[in-house]
Every structure is written in C-alpha cells, then in structure tokens.
Write a protein that binds this DNA or RNA. Structure first.
Lengths: 341, 341
DNA sequence: CTGAAAGCGCTTACAG
DNA sequence: CTGAAAGCGCTTACAG
C-alpha cells in the first residue's frame, strides 16, 4: 500500500496512487500540457505536504541499498577529512549512494559472533570500503571477507581490490631531488613503533635507499624508539635527543626524509637548536597525513594522496558493482609540492 | 514472504518460516531442551547458509531506520577522527544505530531543490547530527530545519539542541594560570580569516581578556591577516614576521593564548628565533583541534573536547528520540592538560 | 499513459 | 509457543 501522503495526493488529483508515484519519480514523459501541469501540481502538493520517499522501502523493492560502508579501525588517526569528503561526493555522483561509517573495535575481535557491527551482520549496504589505517588486524580481514559484498581496500597493498599510494615512486623522487641538490649523506628518519608494520614504512625506505645506492651515496635509517604515546611530545623528547645527537656528528646527514611529521618535528627542532641552516646545511623532507597548518620550517612535504585514493576507490567500487569479480589494484601517485623554504 | 534462506531453513527443520525468524531473533524463551536445541540448530543453519537479516525490510516494518546522519560542511577540516569514533560507538551502544555521513556542498546551496542530499530528501535516518564546523551556512540551517527529524547541533552555540565546548571557562582558566605564574602582559594570538565568525573566537577572547581586566592586567589581540590559504605556511610567513615584530618590542607580551596551532607555530618560532626562553620569558598556550604529534615547543595545549561533545550529542539525541521536543543545550568542559615544557 | 496486482523481507497483531 | 494473515512503502511486470 502506498504511503498516506501519496494516497491523499492521489485522492486530490483524482488519479491512482501509482500515477502519483510515477509523477514524483519523473517516470512520465508525456509532454501534453495538461499532463505536464498535473505532474507539476503533484510535485507541488508533495512538497507542501512534506512528502519524502522512504529509502528503505525502495531498497526492499529493488534489492539495492544505495549505500556503501566505510569500515575503519579505532586506533587509527588515519581518517583524513579530505578522504571522507571525496568519498561522500564521489559516491553521490558516481553511484547515487551514501556513506555509512563503521568501526571495528577491539570488542568486535574478542567476542567472536557477538559484536559484529551491523553493517557486516545485516544486509544494509551494497559494498564495503575498508580503510584499516596502519594496523590491519587479521580478524578484520576475516570478518570482511566472510561477507560476500564487493570490497575495496584503501591504503592496503595487495594484488587486487586495493587502492594505495605509490610510496616507492615518491621516495625515489625525493632522493633524486636531494642528490641533485648536492646531498651526499642521506638518512631516513623513522619511529620504531606501530606504523613499521605498514607497507609504507618499507616502501619509503626502499625507494629512498634504492636511489642512494644506485648513486653510490651513503644512506641509513635513524629510527628512534619511543613508546607509542597518545600524549603530547615531551620537552626532553627522546626523538629530539636522538636528532640532537645525530646532527652534531661530523658525518651528520645532509638530506633527511622523515616517515612522518612526528619525526620531522624532531629533526627540524634539533637542526634549529644546533644552528644548522635548512636548505643549505641540511635538507629535510617529510611525509604527512594531514597538511600541517603550523609553521614547521623549510622542508619538502609529501602529503599522502588521500583525496585521489578516495576517487580511485569509488571508481573501483563502481566497476566491481557493475562487473563483479576482482579489480586490479591501483597505485596512486603522489603529487608532491616542493617547499624548500 | 520470508527470504528464500529462511524458507529453506523452515523446510529443513519442518516449522513455519515465522518460527525460524523468531528463533533467529531470540524471541523464543522456552527452556525445554528440545526447543533450545532446535533453535540452536536454526541459528547454526542460518550461519552456514550465510543468512543476514535485511535491515531495510525491518526498517519498513518498524518505521525505525536504526541510523543517524552526521551532516557536515565541505570546507571544514573540523571532523576529528576521535569525534567520529565516539559517535560510532556511542550510537551503536546507546541507540543500536549506525552512522551515515553526508556533506552539504556548495552545489547543495546553489541549486535549490535539485541538489538536496538524499539523507534530507528521503526518509532513511532517525535523526540528524549537524556539525557545520566554523562556517554555519544559513541555507544549511534552512535545509536541516525543513526536515522534521530530531536534530542535534555540534559545536554550535544556541539556546537549545546544541552541544558546544565551554570556551569561556577554559580561556579564563588559562588566563588565571598565566597570572598566577607572574605574567603581566597578556596577548591573544589570532588570525583574521574565517574562524572569526565562529563563536569560539569571541568566547576565547572574552574569557581570557575578562580575567585580565579583572586583575588589572594588560591584554590585547594580536591578529594577523593572512589570506586563508589551503597551502603550506611559507618561509616568510606573515604570521612569523608579525610575531618577530611583536616579541621584539620592549613591552612584548609574556603570556600568549593562541586561537589555534597555526598562530601558535608562529609565536613559538618567533620566540625561538629571538632567543626567548619559553616558560620563563614567555608562556604560550594554544587551542587545537587535533593533538599535534610533532614537537612544537613547551606550551600548554587545550584540545577541543570533541570526544566528549560526541558523547553529549549522542545522549541528547537519545533523549530527543525518546521524549521528543527540544533539549537544553549542553556546554562541554575542556579538560586541559598542562604542558609547561 | 494508467491502474490493479503481486512481490521485496520483515514485524505486528491475532487466533489456535 | 506456533502459524496464517495483514501491513510497512515502494517497484516490477502485466493488462487495459
């Protein structure tokens, strides 16, 4: 049975409810003025009476939900607003779909069958975008794959159905730029904790060190172990101490690529403290998740291309929804923006 | 008609489909071993056959969607992951609901009736959480209120249905701390562009300057005009130049509260350049949206309590869903964490 | 184009 | 507890 509002409109206009629905859906292509006017009247009435089509009812009838889920992990800070933004608009434009955000918590993993999020336990979306951040829990993979919905993995490196940044290419670019600028002792600044499990850690090093090796230039890792703290960096931060030490050596590096801004902050501050002039004595480049708004110092910043990854993920989802099966993974290129102070 | 899987299970167990559904929903409280075993078998079969209840069908039947929308604006970077996290878990736990994220784009505002997002144009959620960031577009208010769903405004200051941080109280606290530490010339560091329209701009100044005035201590605004750039701060950043100038004066401030980390970065860097010792010559405090991971220098950081706002928003939504009508607005207290280098 | 019917999968309400 | 029926609001498919 049609909704009360639709029935009331039907009564007023003196047509069947089905005709009202057709007019509302724009299914009527009759161009005769009478019909066109009637349809306009129907739409007008619907607006006045506050009619809104029930998306759930349509989903039941069509079997499509018009909704895609974004599955994320709780630890991660890796949910940049610009990615969310592009996912929203991309899904809207390309798939006429909305975005549901779900989180896999620790509880989800612990109590097996009990705490599965509704998106995975019920039928309510047409596909899954999974953005596990830096820590891809094994149980998460199982949970997602237990579902038979189309899946696209974001920022995960795999043979198919993955969208990830081309970390190697950008790292090579940075290394070449440093060499071209005359650097002779390269270093890769990293932290030892969690992100080390993420492919970006290895890829960034491989690309950077690979170019150095080819050129016969020294390159080493400077990795500081600090407990992974959710708290602010401290005044006697171990990262800062480490870099004060490294940059004081006679054979100090003159070109440093930092895994993230956390390491970069330490390098820059140490350099400033030691009176090194950036751009001359030392060149610094850093990856970052979000563009830093605060002044950090003259360095080159490589922003992880989350917006472009979102676009690629939507495109891949569209292809899978249409054709089914697996999709070829997609490495998204960094568009770095130079910034040599 | 029940779903094919349910019917098949019913056939196997030799009961009616309705009984299968009851078992699956845990509606059966009969403790007789035979029944208990049968129900377990039903659940087992459902699992094996990959049965998942159709959320849309349930929504049609019950009139509840089990979903809340988060409406955000595109310009904003104000969608901290921790807020999203708490919204997800809070809605799940307190309302057994999920979260749909929608964005109001410029197109939404321009072409009136055409580009209304589906969440607002259709029936698909039980309520609206609106987080407009720093720029509350007037059309956005209209669009949201045209809907008759329960609404909660996040980070908006209004008489009812709003959840926002208590900017005045925290600013007063900072001012008192600075005075207690012996500061005699206070300054509020701000930028002139967009956030100035947000209530936080006025409130932070009012709280800070109010305490200074009461104590008879000088307090002024140092507001730098820079074009609102989506690009990185530059080497000869106007903010930096301004603060180099301000801190070089003989009557330079010795206690500075910064509107955000963008301003704070300039203050800290200028202080370092001029050889001022933080904590002795100069005390700096700053608001921030996201906890900075990079070392910025010894200062006090007031992190906008987005997680707590999310909790309050969920609680308010729960209340409105239950009781209807308006809810009293809720000012969320900052829990600052001192950090004096 | 129009209308009456059946169907989507689930829940509510009512007999047995 | 169990089952048959009706209903939620929309779409698909089929006559007129």
């Amino acid at each position: 049975m049609p909704s009360p509002i639709v029935r009331k409109i039907a009564q007023i206009i003196e047509v069947s409810p089905r005709t009202v629905e057709r007019a509302l859906n724009g299914e009527l292509k009759d161009t005769r003025p009478t019909i066109v006017a009637r349809n306009a009247r129907i739409k007008q009435l619907a607006r006045e009476m506050g009619y809104r089509p029930n998306a759930a009812a349509r989903a039941v009838a069509t079997g499509r939900f018009g909704c895609i889920a974004l599955v994320v992990m709780p630890e991660q800070e890796l949910l940049p607003a610009r990615m969310l933004r592009r996912l929203c608009t991309g899904l809207h434009e390309r798939l006429d779909s909305e975005l549901k955000v779900t989180m896999l918590t620790d509880e989800t993993f612990e109590r097996a069958e009990v705490n599965v999020p509704k998106v995975l336990a019920e039928l309510s979306v047409d596909g899954l975008l999974v953005s596990p951040g830096t820590a891809l829990h094994e149980r998460a993979v199982d949970l997602v794959e237990a579902n038979d919905l189309p899946v696209v993995w974001i920022n995960v490196q795999g043979v198919h159905d993955c969208v990830y940044p081309d970390e190697i290419e950008i790292s090579q670019r940075v290394a070449r730029d440093m060499l071209a600028a005359g650097c002779t002792r390269l270093a890769f600044a990293a932290l030892e904790q969690s992100p080390s499990k993420h492919f970006s850690r290895q890829n960034r090093w491989d690309g950077f060190a690979g170019v150095a090796a080819e050129a016969g230039v020294a390159c080493r890792v400077e990795s500081v172990a600090i407990p992974f703290v959710e708290q602010l960096p401290q005044a006697d931060d171990p990262r800062l101490r480490h870099w004060l030490d490294v940059l004081a050596r006679p054979d100090r590096p003159d070109g440093v690529l930092c895994y993230g801004v956390s390491a970069a902050g330490a390098v820059l501050q140490a350099a400033a403290t030691l009176g090194l002039e950036l751009g001359r004595d030392l060149r610094v480049a850093s990856f970052c998740t979000n563009r830093p708004h605060a002044i950090m110092g003259p360095m080159q910043v490589c922003e992880v291309p989350f917006a472009e990854m979102a676009d690629a993920a939507v495109a891949m989802m569209a292809a899978k929804l249409e054709r089914g099966g697996h999709a070829e993974s997609c490495a998204v290129r960094y568009h770095d923006y130079g910034f040599w102070g």
